[in-house]
Each structure stands twice: as structure tokens, then as C-alpha cells.
């Protein structure tokens, strides 16, 4: 049975987890180019005022992602 991985939006504010892989190839291309790599530790800094966007930190790089984008990032437990 396949175990479901957590995705980035499930992280609480200031919680961190390691990224494993991406579910969408075209976004994967964009995210890796911006420094979000499988194996990287992602910190959820905070959620946006109206929800639906996330402020994350990866290797000292600060990024803003929409929830559709964040959902494609699978995390370890």
C-alpha cells in the first residue's frame, strides 16, 4: 500500500521538514532552479494574510509560493 506523503502546506508556521520530491514536472523545474531541491530542509516561515500563499525558507533563501505550487512538494514525516 502506498503511503501518502505530507505536502508543504501541511506544515505549521515555523515548522521545518525535508523535501523528498515534486509531483509536477514543470513546477519541479522552476522550484529546483530557485534552489528548492529534493533533500533540502524547508522551513514554513508563515502563511499569507489571506491564506493560500506561503513564506518559506530554504538554505537561507526566502521564497513565496502559492498553495497550488506548495502542494507539489512532498515532505518526509
Amino acid at each position: 500500500m502506498q503511503r501518502r506523503h505530507r505536502t508543504l502546506p501541511e506544515l505549521k508556521a515555523s515548522e521545518s521538514a525535508q523535501a523528498i520530491s515534486f509531483t509536477d514536472p514543470s513546477l519541479a523545474c522552476k522550484l529546483t532552479a530557485m534552489g528548492v531541491l529534493p533533500g533540502a530542509i524547508i522551513e514554513m516561515v508563515r502563511k499569507s494574510p489571506f491564506g493560500d500563499a506561503f513564506y518559506i525558507k530554504v538554505d537561507g533563501i526566502r521564497l513565496a509560493l502559492r498553495s497550488e505550487e506548495a502542494q507539489t512538494i512532498l515532505l518526509t514525516d
Binding site: 513546477l27 522552476k30 530557485m34 533563501i61 526566502r62 521564497l63 513565496a64 509560493l65 502559492r66 505550487e69
Partner: peptide
């Protein structure tokens, strides 16, 4: 054109 947010927040 796909729309992205994926945006870097500079120091």
C-alpha cells in the same frame, strides 16, 4: 502562459 507566484523575497 502559466501563472506562477514562486517568487524570491530579497534580503
Amino acid at each position: 502562459e502559466a501563472t506562477f507566484l514562486a517568487l524570491e523575497m530579497p534580503v
